[in-house]
Structure formats: C-alpha cells, structure tokens
Design a binder for these strands. Structure first.
Length: 798
DNA sequence: ACCTCCCGCCATGCT
DNA sequence: AGCATGGCGGGAGGT
C-alpha cells in the first residue's frame, strides 16, 4: 500500500512466481508493503526487513516511521515483524525462537488477532502489486505463492481475491492463478456497478428498509424482524433481478470451474455491497441494511437470524478488503437505536456507465483498447446462462478476450504510469493504525503530500473548479470530466433528475454497452430473473422517502450532533490514487464526495430542531410522503440519477428524462412540507438551486479508523437515511451536490481543504466542515420534513 | 455484552 | 480420488 509508487510498473511479484521456496518469503514483512520492485525473478526473496524498513527514502516510509514512532502498537508490530524476518518465514526458526520465550513473551511474539486481520492481510497483498500494473508485464498471481509469502492459509487469499475479482482488479486465469489488473478497470467497474445498482433499485430498497425500521421503531409492539414483507416484495416482485455477477469483458472469469461455481456469493455480495454505496446518497451503508438487502435478494424466505449473522460476517470480510482498497472506511451511524456499524464510501465518485456513455475513466489507454472490442464480446454470451447464473462464456468470447488482452498489453505498455506515482500516498491511508494515530498520520501524510504532490494538487484544484461549473456534481468525477470534454452535450443539468420512473431500458440484463471508448459489461442474470427485471413496478410507488428518517431523527436527534465524521474524502481520494492517470479527475471525484455531506450537515441541524411529534403523526406524515413520493418521484429514477450524473441519465435512460417540472416538484414538496416555501428545487443546477435532502434523520457518522483514512475529525453529519431516501436523492440531486456554479470561493475552499483537512487536528465537532468543498459551503435552504425541519445547508456550519 | 471476524471444517465441483 | 474453491458459522479476541 504505501509504496505503490514503487511498484508501479514492476511486475507483480515475479519473485514470488519464480521463487522457489516460498517460505523464505517474508510474509510478515511485507506487511505494509513495500515491495521492492526489482526483486529479480529468480532471486531469492530479499528479506522483508530490508524492504519494509529500509524505505526511508520514500515519503511513505517516512510516514510509517513517524507513525511507528508514535504508535506503540505499530512499533510492536514492526518488532514482531522483525522477528519474523529473522526467522524469515521458516517455521522452524520461528518455533525455535518461541521456545526461548516465556509464555508471556511467546504470546507477545504471536501475532495478535489484529495482525492477522483480513484487512491487514489485504494490505500486504495489495502492496505486492502496483495499482496500475503495466499490462505488458507478467501480472500473474499464484495463489499458493502468495499464501505462502504472506504466511496465511490459502483460504484467506481466496477471500481477498474474490473481492478483488468482483471489482475486476484481478481475474482468474486458471487454477491457482490470477492475473492482476490493479485499478485500471476499477472506475469502469464501479460505473457499471453503479448502473446495475440503479437498475436494481437498491436505493429504493434501502429506503424501504429504513422506512420499515422506523415504522417498527414506532411500533413498539413489533419486534424487530429481519424479514420484511417489503423486502420480500421488493425482491420478488420488483423485478429485482437477482443479478449474479457483473463482468467486465476482458476481465472475466476464464476458468470454467470458476464460472460454474455456484453462486460466487462472496463476489456477488461484494459487488452488491459496492452498488449500495454507489447508489445511496450519503454514501454510507450500514451493515445491517446491506445484509438485509443482500439477503432479501436471495432468498427472502430463509431469512432468519443466523442467516443474517452470516451475512454480516461476510460483509465484514468484504468490507475489510474494500477498506484496504481505500474504497470505504468504517464509520458509525448513530441512530435512535444506537450506534450501528456502517461504512462510508471513500472511493472515487463515479458516474454510472451503463449504456454506453463512456466508462468512467476511459483515460487509461489500455482500457480504451480493451473496451473497444469488449462490447461485442459481451453481448454474445450474456445469455448463455441458462438455469443458473452461468458465467460460462462462449469459446469465441474467450478468444476475443484473449486477443483483447494481448492488444491491451501491447498498447498499454507505456502508458499510464508516470502520474501514478503518487498512489503511495493514498495507500498509506489504508494502513490500519490506532485511531489515535490517525491524526498524526494524517498530518504526516499531509506533509508528505505537500512535499511530493504540490503540482498535482494544483491540478486537482483546477479540475475541481471546472467540475463545479458542471451542472451535476457527479460530473466532477474524472469520468465526468471526461465526458464533459468529450460530449458536453450529454451532460444534463442537475435538474434533469428524472422524476418519472422510467422503465429501465436495460431491463434485461445484460450487456451494458459501453461508451464508445468503453467496453461493455455483461451482467449475467439468471434467466428467469432477467425477465423479471423489467418492470420497476411494485416498489417504486411505495417508496417512502423520509418518513422513517423523521422518526429516527426525533430519537436520534440527540445523537446527531455528536459525531465527527471524517471527511477525509478530499484527502483520501486525492491521495488515493495520486499515481493514477487521472489524478486530477479522481480528485474531483473526491471532492464530490466531500460535497455530499453537505446536505447531510443540514440535516444534522435539522435534527437539532426538535420535533418530537407524536409517532402517530409521524406515521401519517409518512403516509403522506409515500404518496407524494409516488406521485412525484420514482425511486428508481432517483436512484438512477444519484448524484446528478449526467452520464447516468443519458445512458441509463435512453431518453433523457426531463424533469417534469421543477415547479411541480417544488410545489409538491412545499405542499407536503418537505421543503420550506422559500426553498426551491430547481431542475437545473444553477445558482439558487436548493439541494434538498429529504433525509431527515440526522445521523452522525463517526469515522472509525481514522487511521486508515487519515482521520481528520471533521464533523460530518450524515443522515443515515440519506442513504436511501429517494426523495432525498431526488432532491438532493438538484442542489446539494451540485453547488452552483463555482464561486471562486468555493474553489478556494476546496483547495484549502485539500491541503488542510487531513492534517488538521481533530476539529471540534462544531467546527468544521470546511473541508468539504466549497460547493457545500453555501447554505442552501431549509427543508421541512414532517415534524422536522431540516436545514439543508451545505455551508459550513460553524 | 457486543462487535469483529479469524479459523478451518467441510461441501462443492473440477481434473 | 485428489485438489481447488469457497460457504459457513463457531467461537475467541477486542472494546
């Protein structure tokens, strides 16, 4: 992680490949990762120690040292590592060592549970490979070797690889062999997942669950049950396709065995989990909700507690890997029920790349190439699957894929690399260290960044500005940026949020045509399901935006204020892939991310507002809301256009849905009391647009591993509900995310935050937020929700 | 006591 | 049969 830079174009662990005895490898040593690029293939593995500790020259290394100095835990770990290094993986050696130790000592020498965590292991694993591998090089991964080198059971490697596979960061080549793709396809994959998530109406589902919860809450007599009629109905009827696995051509599973595998549950779960983040507005997803949704999709019938528990366990596994990838980070959402573990998306903001609008990040030359041809391929086999989700592809496809890949390699050889160098920074975040250290780490990081990436930052800022100008916030993402450049016309104003539930064009699975530049994705559906998919029907009407949130709010209001969330977004994202080709772009994405919270902040305040309306009343309100929602916004549509993604709109909906009428919407909202009279939701992103976020529930998000993300403690109020609120989304789309045209100030802020945020010591709760981007800084308006008044303000609260 | 999630049994399915 | 995969959930470490 930390040193990805170095890894950039090195062949992924050749050493491993050629190396004979794995044992020598330094499993432990690699911990944070730094792999020296040049281990010769045949050379014996260099001692990890050298590697890991001798990185002084790297900024990362410095950071580590600092952290280590400060953190006993880390130091301890390092020490252990040292031990191992000495023993160098030879079990015998280690044992001997242990023999000399007293029980106590022995214990200490034993890696603690934490040190064996999947997250850490994943970091080690990732450290072995460059984020953006040179396709020309051999990027094969031998699971056995990796397992040995990392000193873990192969089973654990599967856990990691399966998740990576779900993101197309690796693809299976053959038994025991995978190919490392790194992040080349990541954005594209995420875009696809987002599209699929939208189609699946995950946003709606989340809302429903939330709603249910609220209702239950108020209904004391009811005990909390996982099984929900709603869910069931959703899954069953709403055509929720039980999509199995979204593949990216060229990266698909090649081994028949794998393809045939029953469910690929971990992989599928991982994708779905990611989808949830991508479609929810505050990109925060609680494990509980995620588990319910995932279960719901599968077999609602069997929902039971044990299943739920199991699901949660799996989600933790997945979350650990995703966290290592810096795509999410753990937070806590405080609701009436108390603190609930949740995860916040910290990955790049992405725009759906469904039908063809370009993939999110077409930049990489390599990708372009692959994409080109992939489209065709995909389509064909999609349907191969018959009874069960079949991942098997037609032979011809395989050939295609191969050829594509070879092309890709040729093409890619030089490409991307240069810029990527910075990634190290981002990865650093991932290293888990005590939250206490987080700040320190953040600071260090900041410093490092400043030192190393000044130029880049500037770039980022610039991009950000441009992004602001863009109508839709999401556009800020790299992808968007690209879009903008290439096809400005495509971009739609925020207002464009489709209020009309549009039947998903893509209903049938299948292939998501890529933009010209991008490859298409094939979604394998169960045959039966595929059919179902089409009608968005059932659910949409029901969706009730916020009601539940309100409820929550009341109770939760108390908590609400409290938290700080880390908004590391700016930093994390920025740092995340410094090296990437699209540094600037990515950062923008980050910005967007940051922005999102803005709306939430408002909600927080709202939370403060007290309502305490009677439950009954609340319910009534809910009902009203529901109706409204039905009337005005289809969840689906909302979901589809999460953050005002122009691309999404265009692509997903063949016919750009025009906002029926912002006036109508406003009227409705006002009428319902969802927004204050003064407020306006405008269809087009413009100044004055009011981002209204229905999420009433003010939830505070507390970043958990500050360490990972550089924990800056910034206050970040998030309404949990926001995740799903349809309404919220719809409304939010309008304004919140897309701040008005960028004001100079805004941009400045951005820049500022960019630099400052990370390092900033914890801000007192109240403070803050400045980190978000300028866009947020404007207070937009107040949203009234039944009983509660939500203040939607993007501005910095203090 | 609850949250996390490691660990490894064992089913599944390919070779 | 043997091996690769990976579902699954008991139960233990952490807080």
């Amino acid at each position: 992680m930390e040193n990805e830079k170095e890894n950039l174009f090195f062949e992924p662990h050749k050493r491993g490949l050629v190396k004979t005895p794995l044992k020598e490898s330094t499993a432990a040593n690699i911990v944070l990762a730094e792999i020296q690029p040049d281990f010769g293939p045949l050379t014996t593995p260099t001692k990890p120690k050298e590697i890991s500790q001798g990185e002084p020259w790297t900024p990362t290394a410095n950071l580590k040292m600092l952290i280590s100095a400060v953190s006993p835990e880390i130091r301890y770990r390092d020490q252990k590592r040292g031990l191992f290094d000495n023993g160098n993986g030879l079990p015998e050696a280690r044992d001997c060592l242990h023999e000399h130790l007293s029980g106590d000592e022995y214990e200490k020498s034993q890696p603690s549970r934490k040190e064996k965590s999947l997250g850490l292991l994943c970091h080690k694993f990732l450290a072995r490979y460059p984020n953006y591998p040179n396709p020309a090089v051999n990027n094969d991964i031998c699971l056995d070797e990796v397992a040995e080198e990392l000193n873990v059971e192969r089973r654990r490697i599967y856990d990691i690889v399966n998740v990576l596979e779900s993101l197309h960061m690796v693809s299976r080549l053959a038994k025991n062999r995978y190919t490392w793709h790194g992040r080349h396809n990541l954005n594209q994959t995420l875009g696809t997942l987002k599209s699929v998530g939208e189609e699946n109406k995950y946003a709606e589902q989340i809302m429903m669950i939330k709603k249910k919860e609220y209702e239950q809450e108020f209904d004391f007599s009811k005990s909390y049950r996982i099984e929900d009629p709603i869910i069931k109905s959703n899954t069953g009827q709403n055509g929720h396709p039980d999509m199995c696995f979204v593949e990216l051509p060229g990266v698909e599973f090649r081994a028949a065995s794998v393809n045939s595998r029953k469910d690929k549950s971990l992989r599928v779960m991982s994708q779905k989990f990611v989808m949830l983040f991508l479609v929810s507005t505050p990109q925060i997803v609680s494990l509980e909700v995620a588990a319910k949704i995932l279960i719901g999709e599968d077999h609602v019938e069997d929902l039971d507690k044990s299943k739920f528990k199991t699901k949660i366990r799996r989600l933790y596994d997945i979350a650990n890997v995703l966290s290592s990838l810096d795509l999410i980070k753990k937070v806590h959402v405080t609701e009436e029920r108390g603190r609930k573990p949740a995860f916040k998306w910290t990955g790049p903001e992405i725009s759906p790349n469904p039908s063809g609008l370009g993939p999110v990040l077409p930049f990489a030359p390599s990708d372009l190439e692959g994409r080109r041809s992939s489209k065709e391929n995909c389509a064909k086999n999609l349907f191969s699957a018959r009874g069960r989700p079949n991942f098997t592809r037609h032979p011809s496809l395989i050939k295609l894929v191969k050829s594509i890949e070879s092309d890709r390699r040729k093409i890619n050889s030089a490409p991307t690399s240069p810029i990527k160098t910075n990634k190290a920074e981002s990865s650093q975040n991932s290293v888990p260290f005590p939250s206490k250290m987080a700040q320190l780490a953040a600071i260090c990081k900041m410093q490092l960044e400043e030192q190393s990436s000044e130029p880049r930052k500037k770039v980022k800022v610039q991009l950000a500005r441009s992004g602001h100008c863009k109508p839709v916030a999401p556009l800020d993402t790299p992808a968007n940026a690209e879009l903008e450049m290439t096809a400005p016309s495509l971009i739609q104003p925020l207002g464009v949020v489709p209020l009309i539930p549009s039947p998903l064009p893509s209903a049938v699975p299948v292939i998501l045509p890529q933009a010209p530049s991008g490859p298409s994705y094939a979604i394998y559906l169960q045959p039966a399901q595929a059919q179902t998919m089409t009608p968005p029907q059932g659910l949409s009407p029901t969706v009730c935006p916020t009601p539940s949130s309100n409820a929550t709010r009341s109770k939760g209001s108390t908590d609400t204020t409290t938290e700080n969330a880390a908004n590391d977004a700016p930093k994390s994202s920025a740092s995340a892939r410094p090296g990437s080709l699209l540094p600037g772009l990515e950062r923008q994405g980050t910005k967007n991310r940051d922005r999102e919270p803005a709306g939430e902040r408002g909600s927080k305040r709202a939370s403060m507002l007290e309502d305490n309306g009677s439950k009954r009343k609340f319910k009534e309100d809910l009902k009203g809301l529901e109706n409204v929602s039905t009337l005005m916004v289809s969840p689906t549509s909302v979901a589809a256009v999460p953050v005002g993604n122009s691309s999404a709109l265009t692509s997903s909906h063949p016919v750009p849905v025009q906002n029926p009428s912002s006036a109508v919407v406003n009227f409705t909202l006002q009428h319902l009391g969802l927004i204050s009279p003064g407020m306006q939701v405008s269809a087009s992103p413009g100044p004055g647009t009011v981002p209204v976020s229905p999420r009433i529930e003010a939830v505070s998000v507390t970043p958990e591993n500050a360490g990972t993300q550089q924990g800056r403690a910034t206050k970040y109020d998030v309404s949990v509900l926001g995740q799903n609120q349809t309404n919220g989304q719809s409304v939010a789309v309008t304004g919140a995310q897309q701040p008005v045209p960028v004001t100079p100030k805004g941009s400045q802020l951005v820049a500022e935050s960019f630099f400052r945020t990370p390092g900033g010591p914890t801000k007192p709760k109240g403070s803050s937020c400045v980190d978000f981007d300028g866009a947020n800084n404007t207070s937009i308006g107040t949203l009234f929700v039944p009983q509660r008044k939500l203040e939607v303000s993007t501005e910095d609260v203090h």
